[in-house]
Simulated assay, not measured.
Amino acid sequence: MSDPTDLYELAPGAESVPEGLPLVAGLTGFADAGSTVSQLTSYLVDTLEGEIVATFDADTLLDYRARRPVITFDQDHIADYQASTLTLRLMRDELGQQFLLLSGFEPDFRWEQFTSSILGLVSRYGVSTTTWVHAIPMPVPHTRPLGVTVSGNRVDLIESLSVWRPTTQAPANALHLVEYQLAATGHPTAGFVLLVPHYLADTEFPDAAVAALSSISAATGLIFPTDRLREEGREFIAKVDEQVQGNHELSRLVQTLEERHDTYMEGNPLPSPLIGLDGQVPSADAIAAELEKFLSTRRDDDAGPGLA
């Protein structure tokens, strides 16, 4: 295997990073329901103080044909080129507490080498805990608090926060491999998978980003400003509720999701929050279709709650 340190370049101030900080990670790529990870990481970088510690080699790790960078064409010339990045940053939360943030694109290539590089950085900086966030679409209602599935070896977090603990096979995220290898060394690790209403999976759902921040806080003790996201979330939910309440069929479908969710959360004998006693997964295709026009309109509304 190639040297893991070949994948990144340390910044001049990398030697002064304190030891024993928590690592928070979120990478965008295969799935990011509700744009949870992209909202979370952008919000942290834009809102908090921080500086880059290490920059990973995009030419080695990224498939440009699958995820093309964005250019700005200004009438007759290329005015801007937005390169995809993957970085490790030293950040400070709202109280000034320091932590490391790994964010950017999920590598398309060299997962084993990438994982070894992360384990090397964890060792180099004596990282205290590693917490990462992911989000998947699920047939759950937007009218209930977002649930999470917690993985890793932080038993306290799994017992207190994980609402759904399936035994299943699923496509992997690069950070699944990082978690797997870190847990094998005994390093305290927790992964939070946000369960996002599937009919909102293609939007920027602010409440999902708030739930992700809350999960990270529970795992690390870090404190984050969330007022802006919470206000955007209230505006977003109000618009969705308006669409649903104006259509009897949609209201009934959401009610079905609510009933199945509540039955599961009350401890009744359902194997999953996603199915009812009849064993059927509820269909909400009509919700997605009915909301499509509304959501596409909101995407074009610069004054809206950040839908994209």
Rank of each mutant, 00 (worst) to 15 (best):
V148I: 07
W164N: 05
S123V: 12
S162C: 14
G152W: 12
F224H: 01
S215T: 04
V155Q: 14
A172L: 13
R154P: 08
W164S: 09
H142Q: 08
R154N: 11
L195S: 08
T130P: 04
H248E: 15
A218M: 02
V133H: 02
T203D: 08
G126H: 01
E249Y: 05
T167E: 14
H142F: 09
L213K: 05
T129P: 07
A170K: 15
D207Q: 12
Q243I: 06
I223L: 08
V244R: 09
S251P: 01
Q245W: 07
T143F: 07
D241H: 10
H142L: 10
R124S: 02
R230A: 15
R234H: 10
R165N: 15
Y180F: 09
P107T: 00
D241W: 07
T129K: 14
L157A: 11
F114T: 02
V193G: 15
A201D: 06
S116H: 09
G120R: 14
V240G: 03
A211K: 11
L177T: 14
R124K: 10
F105Q: 05
A238C: 06
A201W: 04
V196W: 04
P139K: 12
S151N: 07
T149G: 11
E242S: 11
E249D: 13
L222I: 06
A238G: 08
D207Y: 09
V178M: 03
E249K: 13
G246M: 12
